[in-house]
């Protein structure tokens, strides 16, 4: 079971997670009863990187239209900032007393908080990226709801013109997202849904065309044609709703699948 739900987050945090575990093990094995090296320089490097993340994160939360990101990002950034402060304290304490136990504890706590805080920042960002895709999926659903009122070729041309770019963007975005997910079942479901949407889209257009043709001729079989069109539209909507649902799942929602 992967801990991180995207490969991007995993690739960033996994090496640190391993190092933190290693540090904790060394501490627990009692091998740490020796002098700590001077940590001033590596801690300074961490602080500098944290300052940069806080700057980038604050700029992002100021400029975004995403209200959830605006609300969640500062809190996540504060955690990382706090963690960096713990590391600075650890370096100061160990410089005064290289055998200092509080220094070692602060180093472990600070490292853990850095990991957790950075993870939170990345999750806030990731969730915001997912919301963008979900928004496009919802826009596609809105366009699909128009299908039932299209009754002439001119409107159908406009419908296709409106639907095509957003549908194409959704499929590309979802495919990209799917590739980044670490959860195999989520990947499979999303791939299946995208394939269904891609298959159904031209069939839906075709059914709309048939409906319009029948309507403009003798009208015989128009009810069946409308039924067929509505069915296809409903199927596409179902697939898009499933995409929306799965996109918002993380590996922590695993229980839902049991």
């Amino acid at each position: 079971m992967p801990v991180f739900h995207t490969k991007t987050i995993e690739s960033i945090l996994e090496p640190v997670a391993q190092q933190v575990s290693r540090l904790v093990i060394i501490h627990e094995e009692g091998e740490a009863g020796h002098e700590m090296p001077d940590l001033e320089r590596p801690v300074f490097a961490v602080s500098k990187a944290v300052t940069n993340l806080v700057k980038v994160g604050r700029e992002m939360s100021t400029s975004t239209d995403d209200l959830i990101l605006k609300q969640d990002m500062p809190q996540a950034l504060n955690k990382v900032d706090e963690a960096a402060r713990l590391l600075v304290e650890a370096a100061k304490l160990s410089k005064i007393d290289p055998l200092s136990k509080p220094a070692r504890m602060k180093l472990i706590e600070g490292s853990r908080w850095i990991l957790q805080g950075t993870s939170n920042v990345l999750l806030v960002f990731d969730e915001s990226e997912v919301r963008k895709i979900v928004q496009d999926c919802k826009k596609t659903l809105d366009y699909l709801s128009v299908a039932e009122v299209v009754e002439n070729m001119e409107d159908l041309v406009q419908f296709v013109r409106d639907l095509s770019p957003i549908l194409s963007r959704v499929t590309v975005e979802v495919c990209k997202r799917t590739e980044d997910l670490t959860h195999q079942i989520h990947r499979e479901v999303l791939n299946r849904c995208v394939e269904q949407v891609k298959t159904l889209a031209p069939i839906l257009i075709c059914s709309m065309k048939i409906f319009i043709q029948i309507l403009s001729q003798d009208g015989k079989g128009v009810e069946e044609a409308a039924e067929n069109r509505n069915y296809l539209c409903g199927r596409m909507s179902e697939e898009l709703n499933e995409i929306i649902r799965v996109l918002q799942l993380t590996t922590y929602d695993e229980d839902e699948w049991d």
Binding site: L13, P37, V46, A49, V56, G57
Partner: peptide, 29 residues
């Protein structure tokens, strides 16, 4: 994205810090 690069920098700096701290401990044992 800038935020991903910034997070990467923190991750590598933190990993380097812990490595420095823990390797020094190991060497002394």
């Amino acid at each position: 994205e800038l935020i991903l690069d910034a997070a990467k920098s923190i991750a590598s700096a933190t990993a380097a810090l812990i490595k420095a701290a823990s390797e020094a401990q190991r060497e002394l044992v």
